[in-house]
């Protein structure tokens, strides 16, 4: 396992906790609001995959599934990063979710004129979703949870398990 200087460790940990906080709170807000739905966001999709996202919104059944997966996905990813539990799995999940957001609202030239929802900020090709995705990739490659997090025990338990059955 990579070993870090004290500073490297602290800044990586800070990054993990901040992203974890962001995910967890985004998830909690949605779960706590019974009226929350991704309908508007999906309908506002632009770019290559717009029709795919819009068809998700078009069917009440799929919409309910998408809403559920998004809400609880955000919460679980947030918890995973905050607690340092199965952090690599959490990072991959986060990258996938952010990838979906990025492709449903791609910051391409001209697309900002097409979005109906007001966007926070100005972007050209690179937006916050993409930056957070890369940050999660960094966390995947430079984990901290084996020291600051439950993964220390989780990996211990996971590794012990097969030996038990043998």
């Amino acid at each position: 396992m990579v070993s870090y200087s004290k500073f490297q460790m602290w800044w990586l940990l800070a990054l993990r906790l901040l992203i974890g906080w962001h995910f967890l709170y985004e998830g909690l807000v949605k779960v706590l609001n019974p009226k929350w739905t991704s309908l508007g966001y999906l309908m506002d999709s632009q770019g290559w995959f717009a029709s795919l996202f819009q068809s998700m919104a078009g069917n009440p059944g799929t919409l309910a599934v998408v809403n559920f997966l998004n809400e609880w996905g955000l919460i679980l990813i947030g918890l995973s990063l905050l607690l340092g539990c199965l952090t690599r799995l959490g990072s991959i999940g986060g990258i996938l979710l952010l990838g979906l957001y990025y492709f449903s609202h791609p910051p391409f030239i001209g697309s900002e004129d097409l979005f109906m929802l007001p966007r926070e900020g100005s972007y050209l090709w690179i937006d916050r979703n993409l930056i957070e995705m890369v940050a999660l990739a960094v966390l995947y490659v430079f984990p901290t949870s084996h020291v600051f997090g439950l993964d220390k025990y989780v990996s211990y338990v996971l590794k012990r398990k097969p030996s038990k059955s043998l």
Partner: peptide
């Protein structure tokens, strides 16, 4: 010392719980 390290983020959860309570 290591055990404390593994649980270092629990206060962060506490802070969020407090924040969510105030927000609600």
């Amino acid at each position: 010392r290591d055990a404390i390290k593994t649980l270092v983020s629990v206060p962060v959860l506490g802070a969020m719980a407090y924040g969510v309570y105030k927000k609600t």
